[in-house]
Simulated scan of single mutants.
Amino acid sequence: MRDPALDAVMEALKTVNDPELHRDLVSLGMIERAEVSGGVAAVKVNLTTPACPLKGKIEGDVREAVMAVPGITDVVVTFGAMVRAPSQPALPGVKHVLLVGSGKGGVGKSSVAVNIAAALARDGAKVGLLDADVYGPSVAHMMGQGAAKVTANAERKMQPIEAHGVRFISMANLSPAGQALVWRGPMLHSAVQQFLKDAAWGDLDYLIVDLPPGTGDVQLSLTQTVQVTGAVIVTTPQDVALIDAARAIDMFRKASVPVLGIVENMSYFVAPDTGLTYDLFGRGGSRKLGAEHLLLGEVPIDMEVRKDSDAGVPAVLAHPDSVASAALTQIARNLAGQVSVRSMAQSLQQSLADLPDQLTVV
Rank of each mutant, 00 (worst) to 15 (best):
L47W: 08
V40W: 05
G38F: 01
A65F: 04
S37M: 11
T48I: 14
G38Q: 02
V45K: 05
E59G: 13
G60A: 15
R23G: 00
V62C: 04
V45E: 07
R23Q: 08
T48D: 11
D61C: 11
N46E: 15
V26P: 00
V40E: 01
V62T: 05
C52L: 14
L54R: 01
N46I: 12
V36M: 03
L54T: 09
A42E: 06
P50N: 14
V40G: 05
T49L: 12
A51G: 13
E32W: 03
E64Q: 10
K57Q: 15
R33P: 00
E35I: 01
I58Y: 06
E59Q: 15
G56I: 10
T49I: 13
A65S: 12
I58Q: 02
L54H: 06
A41I: 01
V43P: 02
R23F: 00
V36N: 07
L25V: 06
E35K: 01
V62H: 05
A51T: 13
R63M: 02
S37Q: 09
V26Y: 00
G56M: 13
D24R: 04
G56P: 02
G38I: 04
K44N: 09
A65G: 10
I31V: 15
P50S: 15
V26Q: 03
R23W: 01
V40M: 08
N46S: 15
S37A: 15
S37Y: 00
K55P: 02
A51P: 05
G60R: 07
E32D: 14
V45N: 06
R23S: 09
V62D: 06
R23V: 07
V45M: 11
G60H: 09
C52W: 06
E32F: 04
A34V: 04
V40D: 04
L25C: 07
T49E: 11
D61L: 11
S37G: 07
P50I: 14
R33A: 12
G38A: 07
L28W: 10
L28N: 11
K57M: 15
V43E: 06
D61S: 12
A34G: 04
G60S: 15
V45I: 15
V43M: 02
L28D: 13
V26R: 04
I31G: 09
L25S: 03
K55A: 13
G60F: 08
I58S: 08
R63V: 05
V26N: 00
N46L: 15
T48E: 12
A34P: 02
C52S: 14
L54N: 10
T48V: 15
A65P: 02
T48N: 11
R23H: 04
V62E: 03
K44S: 10
G29L: 14
A41P: 03
A41H: 03
L54Q: 10
G38M: 07
D24V: 02
A65Q: 08
S27N: 12
L25N: 01
S27F: 08
G29A: 14
L28A: 14
